[in-house]
């Protein structure tokens, strides 16, 4: 299922995750968010950027429990809970936010 961004065709897998991480840029993220029916606001970018940083450092997308804890530590307690994250990403923060961040599906996420 390729997507088209700025005239460039970008490959995604059958669930819509980028095949090549290196294809990611902010415009691609906007397009991926659109396909999830989400509008990228400041709070969503915050989570997406956090995931990219986490992946960069550890080479994995964190499980949702780990993400929640780590977000709370980095961005404050009021954001480190699943209610907040599910409000931003209703179909699952790890799943949807990882997709928009251009990361593979989190290990252990079904």
């Amino acid at each position: 299922m390729p997507i088209e961004v700025n005239g460039k065709t970008i490959e995604t897998d059958e669930e819509g995750y980028l095949v090549n991480l290196s294809d990611w840029n902010e415009d691609v993220a906007l397009k991926l968010a659109e396909s999830e029916g989400l509008e990228m606001d400041e709070n969503r970018w915050e989570v997406v950027n956090f995931l990219r940083e986490y992946y960069n450092e550890y080479q994995i997308a964190p499980a949702v429990r780990v993400l929640t804890k780590a977000i709370g530590k980095k961005l404050g307690k009021e954001k480190g809970n699943s209610k907040y994250l599910y409000e931003l990403f209703p179909y699952g923060p790890a799943k949807q936010a990882c997709k928009i961040a251009g990361l593979p599906k989190p290990t252990g996420c079904v």
């Binding site: 986490y54 450092e57 550890y58 080479q59 994995i60 964190p62 499980a63 780990v66 804890k69 780590a70």
Partner: peptide
């Protein structure tokens, strides 16, 4: 290189 991932084990 999956060695950086061992550093995430503490988070898990």
């Amino acid at each position: 290189n999956f060695s950086p991932t061992y550093s995430a084990l503490g988070d898990y």
